[in-house]
Write a protein that binds this DNA or RNA. Structure first.
Lengths: 148, 148
DNA sequence: TTCTTTGCAAATCGTTTGCAGCATG
DNA sequence: CATGCTGCAAACGATTTGCAAAGAA
Protein backbone atom coordinates (compact mmCIF):
# COMPACT_ATOMS: atom_id res chain seq x y z
CA UNK A 1 0.00 0.00 0.00
CA UNK A 2 1.32 3.42 -0.92
CA UNK A 3 1.60 6.38 1.41
CA UNK A 4 -1.40 8.47 2.35
CA UNK A 5 0.09 11.40 0.45
CA UNK A 6 0.32 9.35 -2.72
CA UNK A 7 -3.24 8.12 -2.30
CA UNK A 8 -4.46 11.70 -1.94
CA UNK A 9 -2.78 12.55 -5.22
CA UNK A 10 -4.25 9.50 -6.87
CA UNK A 11 -7.82 10.11 -5.82
CA UNK A 12 -7.69 13.79 -6.74
CA UNK A 13 -6.08 12.91 -10.06
CA UNK A 14 -9.17 10.92 -10.99
CA UNK A 15 -11.62 13.59 -9.91
CA UNK A 16 -12.21 12.14 -6.45
CA UNK A 17 -12.07 13.80 -3.05
CA UNK A 18 -9.72 13.38 -0.12
CA UNK A 19 -12.39 13.14 2.56
CA UNK A 20 -11.62 12.84 6.25
CA UNK A 21 -13.09 9.32 6.20
CA UNK A 22 -10.78 8.15 3.45
CA UNK A 23 -7.71 9.66 5.10
CA UNK A 24 -8.57 8.15 8.47
CA UNK A 25 -9.09 4.68 7.01
CA UNK A 26 -6.00 4.88 4.83
CA UNK A 27 -3.89 5.93 7.82
CA UNK A 28 -5.24 3.13 9.97
CA UNK A 29 -4.49 0.53 7.33
CA UNK A 30 -0.97 1.74 6.55
CA UNK A 31 1.41 -0.57 8.40
CA UNK A 32 -1.37 -2.65 9.96
CA UNK A 33 -0.21 -6.26 10.27
CA UNK A 34 -3.28 -7.63 12.09
CA UNK A 35 -5.27 -8.73 9.01
CA UNK A 36 -8.37 -6.88 10.26
CA UNK A 37 -11.97 -7.40 9.16
CA UNK A 38 -14.21 -4.44 8.34
CA UNK A 39 -15.78 -4.79 11.78
CA UNK A 40 -12.34 -4.77 13.45
CA UNK A 41 -11.50 -1.49 11.76
CA UNK A 42 -14.92 -0.08 12.54
CA UNK A 43 -14.64 -0.53 16.30
CA UNK A 44 -11.11 0.83 16.17
CA UNK A 45 -11.96 3.96 14.16
CA UNK A 46 -15.46 4.80 15.33
CA UNK A 47 -14.23 6.53 18.52
CA UNK A 48 -11.94 8.76 16.46
CA UNK A 49 -14.66 9.71 13.99
CA UNK A 50 -18.03 8.95 15.57
CA UNK A 51 -19.97 9.76 12.41
CA UNK A 52 -18.18 6.99 10.51
CA UNK A 53 -20.51 4.35 9.10
CA UNK A 54 -19.81 0.75 8.23
CA UNK A 55 -21.12 1.37 4.72
CA UNK A 56 -18.49 4.03 4.11
CA UNK A 57 -15.82 1.79 5.51
CA UNK A 58 -16.81 -0.94 3.07
CA UNK A 59 -16.84 1.56 0.20
CA UNK A 60 -13.33 2.73 0.95
CA UNK A 61 -11.99 -0.78 1.51
CA UNK A 62 -13.43 -2.09 -1.74
CA UNK A 63 -12.02 0.89 -3.57
CA UNK A 64 -8.53 0.17 -2.21
CA UNK A 65 -8.86 -3.46 -3.27
CA UNK A 66 -9.81 -2.42 -6.81
CA UNK A 67 -6.84 -0.10 -6.91
CA UNK A 68 -4.58 -2.95 -5.81
CA UNK A 69 -3.52 -0.99 -2.71
CA UNK A 70 -4.70 -3.66 -0.25
CA UNK A 71 -5.67 -7.31 -0.50
CA UNK A 72 -8.84 -9.05 0.67
CA UNK A 73 -8.94 -12.68 1.65
CA UNK A 74 -11.13 -15.21 3.35
CA UNK A 75 -10.07 -17.29 6.34
CA UNK A 76 -13.16 -19.48 6.40
CA UNK A 77 -14.70 -17.60 9.33
CA UNK A 78 -17.27 -15.87 7.15
CA UNK A 79 -15.75 -12.40 7.25
CA UNK A 80 -13.39 -10.79 4.77
CA UNK A 81 -9.95 -9.87 6.06
CA UNK A 82 -7.84 -7.05 4.65
CA UNK A 83 -4.08 -6.60 4.41
CA UNK A 84 -2.11 -3.58 3.20
CA UNK A 85 0.90 -5.81 2.58
CA UNK A 86 0.75 -6.52 -1.14
CA UNK A 87 4.12 -8.23 -1.43
CA UNK A 88 3.98 -11.84 -2.60
CA UNK A 89 3.78 -13.45 0.81
CA UNK A 90 1.56 -16.10 2.42
CA UNK A 91 -0.61 -16.35 5.50
CA UNK A 92 -1.03 -19.23 7.91
CA UNK A 93 -4.69 -19.63 8.87
CA UNK A 94 -5.97 -21.82 11.68
CA UNK A 95 -9.09 -23.73 10.60
CA UNK A 96 -10.27 -23.97 14.22
CA UNK A 97 -9.62 -20.60 15.93
CA UNK A 98 -9.14 -18.64 12.68
CA UNK A 99 -5.97 -17.02 13.92
CA UNK A 100 -3.95 -15.53 11.04
CA UNK A 101 -0.23 -14.90 10.91
CA UNK A 102 2.17 -14.20 8.08
CA UNK A 103 4.12 -17.27 7.05
CA UNK A 104 7.83 -16.94 7.78
CA UNK A 105 9.43 -16.24 4.44
CA UNK A 106 12.25 -18.67 5.08
CA UNK A 107 9.73 -21.52 5.28
CA UNK A 108 7.62 -20.21 2.37
CA UNK A 109 9.64 -18.16 -0.11
CA UNK A 110 7.97 -14.98 -1.37
CA UNK A 111 6.35 -15.02 -4.76
CA UNK A 112 7.29 -12.49 -7.36
CA UNK A 113 3.95 -11.07 -8.48
CA UNK A 114 4.05 -10.65 -12.28
CA UNK A 115 2.11 -7.92 -14.06
CA UNK A 116 0.66 -10.34 -16.55
CA UNK A 117 -0.14 -14.06 -16.55
CA UNK A 118 -1.85 -15.86 -19.40
CA UNK A 119 -3.28 -12.63 -20.77
CA UNK A 120 -4.64 -11.52 -17.41
CA UNK A 121 -3.48 -8.17 -16.06
CA UNK A 122 -2.57 -8.93 -12.43
CA UNK A 123 -3.62 -6.51 -9.70
CA UNK A 124 -2.93 -8.57 -6.60
CA UNK A 125 -1.92 -11.91 -5.21
CA UNK A 126 -3.20 -13.92 -2.26
CA UNK A 127 -1.85 -17.11 -0.75
CA UNK A 128 -2.86 -19.00 2.36
CA UNK A 129 -1.91 -22.21 4.09
CA UNK A 130 -4.80 -23.64 6.10
CA UNK A 131 -4.33 -25.97 9.04
CA UNK A 132 -4.20 -26.04 12.80
CA UNK A 133 -2.15 -23.74 14.98
CA UNK A 134 -0.08 -25.18 17.84
CA UNK A 135 -2.71 -24.34 20.47
CA UNK A 136 -5.55 -25.95 18.53
CA UNK A 137 -3.50 -29.06 17.80
CA UNK A 138 -3.07 -29.50 21.52
CA UNK A 139 -6.75 -28.89 22.14
CA UNK A 140 -7.79 -31.43 19.50
CA UNK A 141 -5.45 -34.27 20.38
CA UNK A 142 -6.08 -36.20 23.54
CA UNK A 143 -2.63 -36.67 25.15
CA UNK A 144 -2.45 -40.35 24.17
CA UNK A 145 -3.31 -39.80 20.51
CA UNK A 146 -0.44 -37.39 19.96
CA UNK A 147 0.88 -37.92 16.40
CA UNK A 148 4.43 -37.58 15.06
CA UNK B 1 -9.06 -35.49 -3.59
CA UNK B 2 -8.95 -39.24 -3.11
CA UNK B 3 -11.12 -41.77 -4.93
CA UNK B 4 -14.72 -42.37 -3.93
CA UNK B 5 -13.76 -45.85 -2.74
CA UNK B 6 -11.14 -44.45 -0.41
CA UNK B 7 -13.58 -41.88 0.93
CA UNK B 8 -16.12 -44.62 1.66
CA UNK B 9 -13.49 -46.44 3.68
CA UNK B 10 -12.53 -43.28 5.50
CA UNK B 11 -16.05 -42.30 6.50
CA UNK B 12 -16.92 -45.81 7.65
CA UNK B 13 -13.67 -46.03 9.54
CA UNK B 14 -14.73 -43.11 11.68
CA UNK B 15 -18.21 -44.43 12.32
CA UNK B 16 -19.89 -42.50 9.52
CA UNK B 17 -22.18 -43.67 6.74
CA UNK B 18 -21.70 -43.82 3.00
CA UNK B 19 -25.02 -42.26 2.10
CA UNK B 20 -26.22 -41.85 -1.47
CA UNK B 21 -25.91 -38.07 -1.07
CA UNK B 22 -22.27 -38.25 -0.06
CA UNK B 23 -21.41 -40.63 -2.86
CA UNK B 24 -23.20 -38.51 -5.44
CA UNK B 25 -21.45 -35.34 -4.34
CA UNK B 26 -18.06 -37.00 -4.07
CA UNK B 27 -18.42 -38.44 -7.57
CA UNK B 28 -19.44 -35.09 -9.01
CA UNK B 29 -16.47 -33.34 -7.44
CA UNK B 30 -13.88 -35.89 -8.46
CA UNK B 31 -12.12 -34.54 -11.51
CA UNK B 32 -14.22 -31.34 -11.65
CA UNK B 33 -12.06 -28.49 -12.90
CA UNK B 34 -14.77 -25.81 -13.03
CA UNK B 35 -14.26 -24.38 -9.51
CA UNK B 36 -17.98 -24.70 -8.76
CA UNK B 37 -19.94 -22.95 -6.03
CA UNK B 38 -22.40 -24.84 -3.84
CA UNK B 39 -25.21 -23.49 -5.99
CA UNK B 40 -23.48 -24.66 -9.18
CA UNK B 41 -23.27 -28.19 -7.80
CA UNK B 42 -26.82 -28.02 -6.53
CA UNK B 43 -28.37 -27.28 -9.92
CA UNK B 44 -26.17 -29.92 -11.49
CA UNK B 45 -27.04 -32.68 -9.00
CA UNK B 46 -30.64 -31.89 -8.10
CA UNK B 47 -32.03 -33.59 -11.24
CA UNK B 48 -30.12 -36.75 -10.45
CA UNK B 49 -31.29 -36.86 -6.83
CA UNK B 50 -34.36 -34.64 -6.51
CA UNK B 51 -34.52 -35.00 -2.75
CA UNK B 52 -31.08 -33.42 -2.35
CA UNK B 53 -31.07 -30.28 -0.23
CA UNK B 54 -28.65 -27.37 -0.26
CA UNK B 55 -28.07 -27.87 3.47
CA UNK B 56 -26.82 -31.40 2.91
CA UNK B 57 -24.63 -30.22 0.09
CA UNK B 58 -23.04 -27.64 2.38
CA UNK B 59 -22.58 -30.26 5.09
CA UNK B 60 -20.77 -32.62 2.77
CA UNK B 61 -18.66 -29.88 1.21
CA UNK B 62 -17.55 -28.50 4.56
CA UNK B 63 -16.71 -31.97 5.73
CA UNK B 64 -14.48 -32.55 2.69
CA UNK B 65 -12.74 -29.24 3.36
CA UNK B 66 -12.04 -30.23 6.97
CA UNK B 67 -10.66 -33.53 5.76
CA UNK B 68 -8.36 -31.70 3.36
CA UNK B 69 -9.95 -33.52 0.39
CA UNK B 70 -11.06 -30.33 -1.38
CA UNK B 71 -10.21 -26.64 -1.08
CA UNK B 72 -12.53 -23.68 -0.64
CA UNK B 73 -11.68 -20.20 -1.83
CA UNK B 74 -13.20 -16.83 -2.42
CA UNK B 75 -13.13 -15.01 -5.74
CA UNK B 76 -14.63 -11.79 -4.46
CA UNK B 77 -18.06 -12.56 -5.92
CA UNK B 78 -19.58 -13.39 -2.54
CA UNK B 79 -19.84 -17.12 -3.02
CA UNK B 80 -17.42 -19.80 -1.94
CA UNK B 81 -15.83 -21.85 -4.71
CA UNK B 82 -14.63 -25.41 -4.29
CA UNK B 83 -11.83 -27.34 -5.97
CA UNK B 84 -10.90 -31.02 -5.63
CA UNK B 85 -7.41 -30.25 -6.93
CA UNK B 86 -5.31 -29.97 -3.78
CA UNK B 87 -1.95 -29.78 -5.48
CA UNK B 88 -0.01 -26.58 -4.83
CA UNK B 89 -1.28 -24.63 -7.80
CA UNK B 90 -2.76 -21.15 -8.34
CA UNK B 91 -5.91 -19.70 -9.85
CA UNK B 92 -6.34 -16.63 -11.99
CA UNK B 93 -9.45 -14.70 -10.97
CA UNK B 94 -11.02 -11.88 -12.93
CA UNK B 95 -12.05 -9.03 -10.64
CA UNK B 96 -14.75 -7.93 -13.10
CA UNK B 97 -16.47 -11.05 -14.49
CA UNK B 98 -15.20 -13.41 -11.77
CA UNK B 99 -14.08 -16.00 -14.27
CA UNK B 100 -11.63 -18.47 -12.70
CA UNK B 101 -9.00 -20.55 -14.46
CA UNK B 102 -6.00 -22.45 -13.21
CA UNK B 103 -2.77 -20.56 -13.72
CA UNK B 104 -0.47 -22.24 -16.23
CA UNK B 105 2.19 -23.91 -14.14
CA UNK B 106 4.95 -22.73 -16.46
CA UNK B 107 4.08 -19.13 -15.64
CA UNK B 108 3.48 -19.82 -11.93
CA UNK B 109 5.49 -22.79 -10.63
CA UNK B 110 3.62 -25.14 -8.32
CA UNK B 111 4.17 -24.88 -4.61
CA UNK B 112 5.25 -27.85 -2.61
CA UNK B 113 2.74 -27.95 0.24
CA UNK B 114 4.62 -28.81 3.44
CA UNK B 115 3.00 -30.74 6.28
CA UNK B 116 4.15 -28.26 8.87
CA UNK B 117 5.00 -24.56 8.84
CA UNK B 118 5.91 -22.57 11.92
CA UNK B 119 4.26 -25.11 14.21
CA UNK B 120 1.05 -25.19 12.19
CA UNK B 121 -0.11 -28.54 10.84
CA UNK B 122 -1.01 -27.79 7.21
CA UNK B 123 -4.19 -29.26 5.73
CA UNK B 124 -4.47 -27.30 2.51
CA UNK B 125 -3.10 -24.49 0.41
CA UNK B 126 -4.80 -21.81 -1.64
CA UNK B 127 -3.31 -19.26 -3.99
CA UNK B 128 -4.94 -16.77 -6.32
CA UNK B 129 -3.85 -14.02 -8.67
CA UNK B 130 -6.52 -11.35 -9.03
CA UNK B 131 -6.77 -9.06 -12.03
CA UNK B 132 -8.59 -8.61 -15.30
CA UNK B 133 -9.08 -11.26 -17.93
CA UNK B 134 -8.44 -10.43 -21.59
CA UNK B 135 -12.13 -9.84 -22.36
CA UNK B 136 -12.63 -7.48 -19.42
CA UNK B 137 -9.48 -5.55 -20.23
CA UNK B 138 -10.92 -4.87 -23.65
CA UNK B 139 -14.27 -3.89 -22.20
CA UNK B 140 -12.68 -1.50 -19.71
CA UNK B 141 -10.24 0.28 -22.00
CA UNK B 142 -11.62 2.69 -24.57
CA UNK B 143 -9.62 1.97 -27.73
CA UNK B 144 -7.59 5.17 -27.43
CA UNK B 145 -6.55 4.58 -23.81
CA UNK B 146 -5.01 1.19 -24.56
CA UNK B 147 -2.01 0.72 -22.24
CA UNK B 148 1.19 -1.21 -22.91
C1' DT C 1 -21.79 26.05 -6.97
C1' DT C 2 -21.06 21.41 -8.63
C1' DC C 3 -20.42 16.78 -8.10
C1' DT C 4 -18.57 13.19 -5.27
C1' DT C 5 -19.15 10.90 -0.99
C1' DT C 6 -21.28 10.04 3.29
C1' DG C 7 -24.62 8.00 6.68
C1' DC C 8 -28.73 5.83 7.62
C1' DA C 9 -31.68 2.03 7.37
C1' DA C 10 -33.51 -1.40 4.78
C1' DA C 11 -32.64 -5.08 1.73
C1' DT C 12 -29.95 -8.89 0.04
C1' DC C 13 -28.57 -13.45 -0.16
C1' DG C 14 -25.13 -17.09 0.67
C1' DT C 15 -24.63 -20.11 4.43
C1' DT C 16 -25.87 -22.21 8.86
C1' DT C 17 -28.91 -24.24 12.28
C1' DG C 18 -32.61 -27.06 14.81
C1' DC C 19 -35.09 -30.84 14.72
C1' DA C 20 -38.22 -34.70 13.29
C1' DG C 21 -38.04 -38.52 10.13
C1' DC C 22 -35.26 -41.69 7.48
C1' DA C 23 -31.75 -44.94 5.90
C1' DT C 24 -27.37 -47.11 6.74
C1' DG C 25 -24.54 -50.59 9.11
C1' DC D 1 -32.63 -51.36 15.85
C1' DA D 2 -29.28 -47.76 17.03
C1' DT D 3 -27.34 -43.78 15.32
C1' DG D 4 -25.71 -40.75 12.02
C1' DC D 5 -27.56 -38.13 8.22
C1' DT D 6 -30.95 -35.78 5.53
C1' DG D 7 -34.41 -32.28 4.28
C1' DC D 8 -37.13 -28.58 5.46
C1' DA D 9 -37.74 -23.99 6.76
C1' DA D 10 -36.42 -20.54 9.58
C1' DA D 11 -32.55 -17.87 11.32
C1' DC D 12 -28.36 -15.55 10.69
C1' DG D 13 -25.19 -12.05 9.71
C1' DA D 14 -21.82 -9.93 6.79
C1' DT D 15 -22.02 -6.92 2.98
C1' DT D 16 -24.53 -4.01 -0.31
C1' DT D 17 -27.86 -0.63 -1.88
C1' DG D 18 -30.86 3.68 -2.44
C1' DC D 19 -31.27 8.14 -1.55
C1' DA D 20 -31.27 12.63 0.81
C1' DA D 21 -27.94 15.55 3.05
C1' DA D 22 -23.13 17.03 3.65
C1' DG D 23 -18.69 18.77 2.28
C1' DA D 24 -14.62 18.83 -0.98
C1' DA D 25 -12.83 21.36 -5.00
Amino acid sequence: MRSVEELIERVRGQGGKATSQRILIWSALKGDVSHPTAEDLYVRLKPRLPSLSLATLYNVLNELVEWGEIRRFDTGDGRIHFDPDTSGHSELVCMRCHRVIDAPTDAVPRRHVPERVAGYRIISHSEQYFGYCPDCQRALEPASTREE
